[in-house]
């Protein structure tokens, strides 16, 4: 019993020490992040009231009493929303195509040379770690305001993220088909095309679809830095306190994201089902 007590006591001490460490880290962080509980408590009532205020029109009526007034800019917003979707689509596809080429160069089992692999890996890491919006800010300077900067930012980030995932998929393939094709004297790219690509295709598509979901959300905020899409109208509405516009645009974005999510998950499940059949 004494041994049991001792072991419980030592575990308690460990837990307590961990809690103390976490608490100390949080305290230091709160000082640095200028957290003030007083300001928070004084202003917290404004959070629910802000959210509620979003659902009232300028004339003081709740938004659902007059849909025409709530969605007054429907045509413009739908156009911007379709631009956002198109940005996500083009960015994802360009990024995924580039990533699927780089993946074969960056995978440990099939890469043509060690230095190629290292260069590709580092490049993907750089593209992935620098946030999308930073790329967008830089591209806005180079390409001017407009959706093209946003598309390229999405594409670069997708390239980085998918390059890593795709390379991991390629590293997990069965090497026998590749060896078989190579043994007939085929060049490297032929061996990849007929030995490796058929094995990884369904996984590539599945990851690219997941990335598309993420990129729709990402493209929606590209407008915050002037890189096209619905974000431009959203940030303007938030900054100028056009409350009902904010809620209208947010509702439209949320609906679009929900529809895209369920469509892609449907597609991915069908894809996995196809794989099972073969």
């Amino acid at each position: 019993m004494a041994a049991y007590d001792a072991s419980v006591r030592s575990r308690r001490w460990h837990t307590l020490l961990m809690v103390a460490c976490v608490a100390a880290a949080m305290l230091l962080a709160s000082i640095s992040a200028e957290v003030s509980p007083v300001k928070f408590l004084e202003n917290i009532h404004r959070f629910p009231s802000y959210i509620i205020r979003l659902f009232y029109l300028e004339n003081g009526q709740p938004v659902w009493t007059d849909f025409g007034e709530w969605f007054w800019g429907l045509g413009r917003w739908l156009r911007l929303l379709s631009e956002t979707l198109l940005m996500a689509y083009v960015g994802t596809l360009l990024g995924a195509l580039a990533a699927s080429c780089l993946a074969f160069l960056g995978a440990a089992n099939v890469a043509p040379a060690r230095w190629v692999r290292l260069v590709v890996r580092r490049f993907c890491e750089l593209c992935r770690t620098v946030p999308e919006l930073v790329f967008a800010l830089l591209f806005v300077i180079a390409f001017g305001l407009g959706p093209m900067a946003g598309v390229l930012a999405v594409a670069i980030h997708t390239l980085g993220a998918l390059g890593k995932l795709f390379a991991e998929v390629v590293e997990n393939i069965d090497m026998k088909p590749v060896e078989g094709v190579s043994s007939t004297g085929a060049a490297w790219h032929v061996a990849m095309r007929f030995g490796a690509l058929p094995q990884v295709m369904s996984n590539f598509v599945s990851y690219a679809l997941l990335r598309f979901e993420i990129n729709v959300r990402g493209a929606a905020v590209m407008g915050f830095v002037g890189a096209g899409g619905i974000g431009q109208d959203l940030i303007e509405a938030i900054r100028k306190f056009y409350y009902s516009d904010v809620s209208a645009i947010l509702v439209m974005i949320l609906l679009t994201v929900a529809v895209i999510d369920s469509l892609t998950s449907l597609l991915r499940h069908r894809l996995i089902g196809l794989e099972g059949k073969n």
């Binding site: 957290v35 003030s36 917290i44 959300r217 929606a220 905020v221 974005i253």
Partner: peptide
């Protein structure tokens, strides 16, 4: 989850003002 982190940041800025607290 569907609302982007930047949008949350903008909403919290309206509540507690500009600064790192809104970001946290």
């Amino acid at each position: 989850r569907s609302v982007d982190i930047l949008i949350w940041a903008l909403i919290w800025i309206n509540v507690v003002g500009l600064g790192p607290f809104a970001g946290a």
